[in-house]
Every structure is written in C-alpha cells, then in structure tokens.
Amino acid sequence: MAIGADFDEVLSGAKAGDEVAVARFYRDLNPTLVRFLGAQAAGLGEDLAQEVWLALARGLEAFSGDEDGFRAWMFTIARRQLITHWRKEGRRPYRTTDPADLGDMDTSTSPDDEPDARVLADEAVQALVAGLPREQAEIVLLRVVAGFDAEQVGAIVGKRAGTIRVLQHRALRTMAERLAAEPVTK
C-alpha cells in the first residue's frame, strides 16, 4: 500500500504536527518496518520500530522528497537503529536466525493459542532469510519486504548497485539450496 498522490499533502500535515497525517504514515509503513527489523532482531521489531518512528519525527521538518525518498529515508534510519541496537548488545550477528531454530519459534502468542497474522508474517520473513549472512539478509529484506530496487537498496546501505546485485545473486542461490531441502511453511 502506498500513499500515492496524497503524499505531499500528508507530508505537509505531518510536518505541521497533524495527528491524522502522522497516523497515516504509521499505518502505511509500520508493518513493513516491523518485519524488516524483526527479521534481524528477533522479538524486537515493534520496539525498534517505535524508536525509528520517533527518530523520524524529530527529523521530519528537514525532510524533502517524494514518497520513495521518504521510505528510503525511514529504512536508513531503521538500519542505523539496528546497528545501534547491536552495538548496545555488544555483538553484531553475522547471520540471521539459524534455520535449525525455525521450528522452535513460539507461534502461540495470541489469546486463542492460534498463531495470529503478525506471527505468521514474522515467521515467513524469518524463514526467507534464515541462515543468510547479515549483509545478504539485509539486502533481501530491503528488496522483498520493503520493495526497493537494487539502486535504492544501494543508496540505503551505502553500496553500489552492482555490488547489491552480486550480493543478491549469492543470497538467492543460498536460499534456493536451503529451501529446496525443506518445504516453505505458508
């Protein structure tokens, strides 16, 4: 979902502190943001997303650009937030979730003991990038979850588009090898 033609108006409203405009940004982008963050910091997607939104709000006045630029800016903040989180934790994982741990993920957090949509979405993202080196997982997430192209991903992570393409090739090959061995849980 995108804001589209209303983007400029919504942006102006958000810059002026209009709660409705701010909420529209949040509803449009937060699910994607939470998935991107949760895939790299299991169980912390919501909390980290909240910090990203606050950082974005503090810098909103200085932002100028279109909707793609806004989303790229938000994921740049999210990426920095992750790095800060890892620095606080004292470790920066080389790989995302170990594929062997995927079956142990708790999916019974809803009151009815039925996995809700959020948990299933998190699980699907975790399954996609499980076992990938962090650098490749980040590129896959930015491409698949956030929907950026190679050039945009390169701008966010500070690499050339050619480098991004090389890394995404490697990631696809690794994913294909692993997923071919185990069926994808839908």
Partner: peptide
C-alpha cells in the same frame, strides 16, 4: 531450482500484519 524460493518470497509478500 528456484520454485521453493519463489514460494518463500510470495509467502512474505502475501503476509499481512495486523496493527497493534
């Protein structure tokens, strides 16, 4: 060789997260 990979990508693309 990329069928399951496409499945996994589609699973992520089709998933929806409820808003808290």
């Amino acid at each position: 060789g990329y069928g399951t990979t496409v499945d996994a990508i589609q699973a992520v693309a089709n998933s929806s997260s409820a808003t808290d």
